[in-house]
Simulated assay, not measured.
Amino acid sequence: MFFSVIIPTYNRLPILKKCLTALEHQSNHNSVENYEVILVDDGSTDGTLKWLQDHQLEFPHVRWFCQTHQGPAAARNLGVQQAEGDTIIFIDSDLVVTENFLKAHATALIQASKISDRVFTYGRVINTCNFEYPTAEPYKITDFSAAYFATGNVAIARHWLIEAGLFDTQFHLYGWEDLELGVRLKKLGLTLIKCPDAVGYHWHPPFALEQLPNLIEREIQRGRMGVLFYQKHPSLEVKLMIQMTILHQVLWGILSVGGRLNERTMAGVLQWLINQGKPQLALEIARIFLNWYNVRAVYAAYREL
């Protein structure tokens, strides 16, 4: 099995260094014939390319390509087009994997293929804000994901991606491009195989109030792209995924008191929690009004149709 690990990146150089280093230290296993790392720089302005050029001898498995800033869908498509492997693994550039990462995906794929070749594996993603030792974070209930196809840690035969049509580059803002491809893969009859031994640690900085404007903008973009998702696949399943139901309107409307609990009115409480060393709890509380922004953006985009 020849793996091509495809990583889109945009201005994430500090954690990208850890990401690539971890991939260079994979344990040998006879089911992994070879592997390459395809890094696609999506127009970074933080010196990513200069760093790669200066350190290329340290990363013999890495090949990199560049594009103007077009988003992760276009970046992943470029990676698939340039890949030499028969099996593609998608991860993000802020994911740090364990040394058995490739071995675990290979073992699960080989085992599942004895029953059917219409399978792909989804590894475990553990969220952490520990930059120095990201792999020290334990698994938490909040790390559970019920997504069918998410590019944070997934392995799939390259030919299925080609047959499904790759990622839709109309998803140029944040969100849904991987789950939309997942709908098309499901129509091809592919089955998800959970692979908890293929572990990746998804790093993000500790929550701070300064992040709220970007988080709100991301929710608004996710709402707009969610409506595009529904346009392409108008089903109840997609409506539930993008929160375009009366239930979601009522739920987040009540919890946010009609938007009265927001980044301004909650700032004091959130900052207090952060000062108490509980930034993750502060973020979970902030998700109440962040989800309200998302639901409002979904319906605003839908009204524009």
Rank of each mutant, 00 (worst) to 15 (best):
M266A: 14
S145D: 14
V80Q: 03
D41Y: 06
H248W: 00
V5G: 03
C195R: 05
I193S: 06
A297H: 02
E84K: 15
P14C: 03
Y133C: 14
T87C: 12
E177Q: 15
R287P: 11
S235M: 11
D94W: 02
Q276V: 02
D168T: 07
P134N: 08
A73I: 09
K239I: 02
V238W: 13
I193N: 01
G200Y: 14
A286C: 13
E84V: 13
P8G: 05
S113P: 00
L49F: 04
P205T: 00
I274R: 10
Q243R: 13
V199I: 14
A108Q: 10
N291Y: 14
Y293K: 10
Q231W: 08
G182A: 11
P72I: 03
H233W: 10
T21W: 14
Y139K: 03
Y35N: 08
L102D: 06
E137G: 05
T21Y: 14
Y122W: 01
A208C: 11
H55K: 14
Y10W: 08
G85K: 08
L179Y: 12
R118H: 10
V97D: 13
W272K: 15
L212T: 06
A286R: 11
E84H: 15
D168A: 09
L39R: 02
G165W: 04
P134W: 06
F59P: 04
T151S: 01
G253S: 14
N77Y: 11
E217Q: 15
H159M: 11
L16I: 06
K187F: 05
S145P: 08
R118Q: 11
G189E: 05
D42R: 00
T135M: 15
N130C: 09
W292I: 01
W203Q: 06
A74G: 05
G71T: 02
N11H: 04
H159Q: 15
K17E: 13
I220G: 04
Y133S: 15
P234D: 01
E210Y: 02
Q221S: 03
I220R: 15
R260G: 07
K18N: 03
